[in-house]
Design a protein around this nucleic acid. Structure first.
Lengths: 119, 119
DNA sequence: TAGCGCTACCTCGCGATGCAGAGTAGTATC
DNA sequence: GATACTACTCTGCATCGCGAGGTAGCGCTA
């Protein structure tokens, strides 16, 4: 099942997506779910996002600001901290390297010489 | 720890990498480990690769050919089956969509109109 | 007051995966 | 027989995504 594979692929990636969304400005959980949900491959529910937000916050990558919405429960706005921005930059760096590695995997490795001429 | 994040990122991705490596032609486990190990982000050991190969084979994405190596135990060459190639194509498709989604996440969403002019 | 629906947040428990560590087996060399 | 190298296998743990379920504030209708 491709769907099961996508679930595995998201591991780690969703954390990155949350940070990326927040790099555009502060936002609250419910809206982040909606923002990611616009993309089929990132369709998620609260039970996926809230634990990520909690962990990111615990690790000091996010800070919190509670704002009464007057239209329901208080909204908890998350935004990147300084180290959160650093973290996101590191992630971007690693993702680029991974992309590069994958594109190299698609091409047979260039042996310096042809001391291996099987078949 | 970024390293822990990379570990999470690899979930699902390694399966894709293995299929990609095999799309270049048949190969055996030990060599696949070496092929992936050339890239820092994909540095793995046998205990990571062999379970993937076993699962991929069980799901009929790979077929096996045993070849005595005369230099140790018999080598077990893996190669893509027909549905293995289909699977890899599907994965490529999904990865492209994910890449596209990520690049859109980096840009604030364009509202068709400005019926939402917050700030 | 009671019931319903929407917004918004949080927690529990399961399944899948990556991976360190340890083990098995075949061949060659000493 | 002991050591070393190649090649593959198994066990057990940690982490994450996510379905299911729960709480709470506000507004509407009856």
């Amino acid at each position: 099942m491709i769907e099961a594979w996508i679930t595995q692929l998201r591991k780690g990636l969703l954390e990155y997506c949350v940070l990326t969304v927040l790099s555009r400005g502060e936002n609250y959980g419910y809206e982040i779910v909606a923002a990611l949900g616009r993309f089929e491959e990132f369709s998620v529910t609260e039970s996926t996002i809230y634990p990520i937000l909690a962990r990111l916050r615990q690790e000091k990558y996010l800070k919190v600001r509670d704002v009464p919405s007057g239209l329901g429960p208080t909204r908890r706005y998350f935004s990147l901290t300084a180290i959160g921005k650093v973290r996101l930059a590191e992630m971007n760096h690693h993702l680029k390297k991974i992309e590069s590695a994958i594109s190299q995997l698609k091409t047979p490795p260039r042996k310096d010489n042809s001391h291996e001429s099987d078949t």
